[in-house]
Design a protein around this nucleic acid. Structure first.
Length: 406
DNA sequence: TCAGCAATGTCTGCTAAGCT
DNA sequence: AGCTTAGCAGACATTGCTGA
């Protein structure tokens, strides 16, 4: 994007949010939008204290019903000895801030928490929906009251789901509570950035939440506020107290939280169907998943599923998946299965990894020194070693095998 | 008994990438 | 832009097994 495109994009966003495109004319000359005089209170926000506002929205998109323990580690007390955790234990959260650093000058002005709840309404009983509570700070002095109100939604016994929240949101929040001499006890942090990278990085490249929304969730935002503009728009709001200045940011923030819930649902769907060849309807087909990444996520808690994923990918011609599967077989003592894979990898693609494994197998397991030497000579003849250490290792092996043979 | 090998674990340093 | 995290590679230590 060149500077001209960027300028026009910024103008069009400003036009949507407050009509204040920079035209060279003074503020006084500009014609305000008809709704420019609206306040937070006109837009569904409730005033909690002088500078703190709160809004509740209900979203009915694709939501996780129960969530597996696959993405959680042993430090998560909520998941202790459970393979499935009720969705009510998960809180989806996101913040908007005045900058990127965790330093003193950067504050959180918008925080949102999404709770999965089940309807008690007579007509929709049992239906799960996402209730999102947004908290807005309308000016800096209200920060202590803002943080105090937020404590209502942060409890140590829940699992807090975010996108890059481990690095960003949680740290900034902790730092704001510390700056205000207040205590906060966050629950377990589940950051979907890292699992998303494993699943899609090799397929779609960049894995920002926006990329994931577009490529995986198939969501298109009509006109979104780019992150880098958020601080400026908030500062405009502080100066002008015009609600329409910040309207786009709040909408963007609500979308982000809603997408988090949907993204967790996609993870769950993938885990549930791992190893099966068809992923139905809502999301991209199986070829759109990095089999190695999915298997690596499943490896600890569902090793049998990880093996199924790799096996199915290997059948489809993914040699790296075959290599991974062979190591699982080897560790489990299933040598015959491992040898079949190594032979195929060697025959089909002259895989150095497979050849080294076969040489080890014939030397130490099958005690067939001639065969071990044969494959060692074959692979040494390839002359396409990226890692010189492997070649040296093979030459050492060759020397040893010749001695053994004699 | 001991040397050599393979596997595994730990530590360190570096890089890439996400958030507003 | 600043900060944090995970992943990766390389170096090194430890353990267990095997065969001379």
């Amino acid at each position: 994007m060149d500077i001209k495109d960027l300028r026009s994009r910024i103008d069009s966003i400003k036009q949507q949010t407050n009509g204040s495109v920079h035209t060279g004319k003074s503020q006084r000359e500009k014609k305000p939008r008809p709704d420019a005089g609206k306040t937070l209170l006109d837009n569904g926000w409730n005033r909690i204290s002088e500078m703190v506002y709160e809004k509740v929205s209900v979203i009915n998109n694709i939501l996780p019903e129960a969530v597996s323990d696959i993405l959680l580690d042993e430090s998560c007390n909520t998941a202790e000895n459970k393979t499935m955790i009720p969705a009510e234990n998960f809180v989806f959260y996101d913040t908007e801030t005045t900058g990127l650093s965790a330093g003193a000058g950067n504050i959180v002005f918008l925080a949102g928490f999404g709770f999965l709840e089940t309807s008690n309404d007579a007509t929709t009983t049992g239906k799960t929906y996402l209730k999102i509570v947004q908290l807005f700070l309308s000016d800096f002095p209200g920060e202590p009251a803002f943080l105090e109100r937020m404590k209502k939604y942060i409890t140590p016994d829940r699992i807090y789901v975010s996108y890059n929240g481990k690095s960003f949101d949680a740290n900034i929040l902790r730092s704001r509570y510390a700056m205000n001499a207040m205590q906060i006890d966050f629950g377990y942090q589940l950051d979907l950035l890292y699992s998303s990278r494993r699943l899609w990085k090799n397929i779609i490249g960049a894995c920002s939440l926006g990329d994931i929304e577009r490529e995986v969730l198939d969501k298109r935002r009509a006109l979104d506020v780019p992150g880098f503009m958020v601080p400026d728009l908030y500062f405009d709001f502080i100066r002008t107290a015009r609600w329409d200045t910040i309207e786009g940011v709040n909408a963007h923030h609500l979308e982000d939280i809603s997408s988090l819930a949907e993204l967790l649902a996609v993870h769950e769907q993938l885990f549930a169907e791992a190893g099966e060849h068809i992923l139905p309807g809502n999301y991209k087909p199986a070829e759109y998943i990095d089999a190695l990444g999915l298997a690596s996520l499943l490896a600890d808690k569902r090793p049998e599923k990880a093996a199924l994923v790799l096996s199915s990918a290997f059948k489809g011609g993914n040699h790296k998946a075959g290599a991974g599967l062979s190591i699982i077989h080897k560790r489990a003592g299933r040598w015959d299965d491992a040898v079949i894979i190594w032979n195929r990898l060697w025959d089909d693609g002259k895989s150095i990894f497979a050849a080294v494994e076969l040489a080890k197998y014939y030397e130490h397991r099958a005690h067939n020194i001639e065969k071990a030497l044969g494959i060692t000579n074959d692979v040494l003849g390839l002359e396409r070693f990226r890692i010189t250490g492997i070649k040296q290792e093979l030459e050492k092996r060759k020397k040893r095998l010749i001695t053994k043979l004699n």
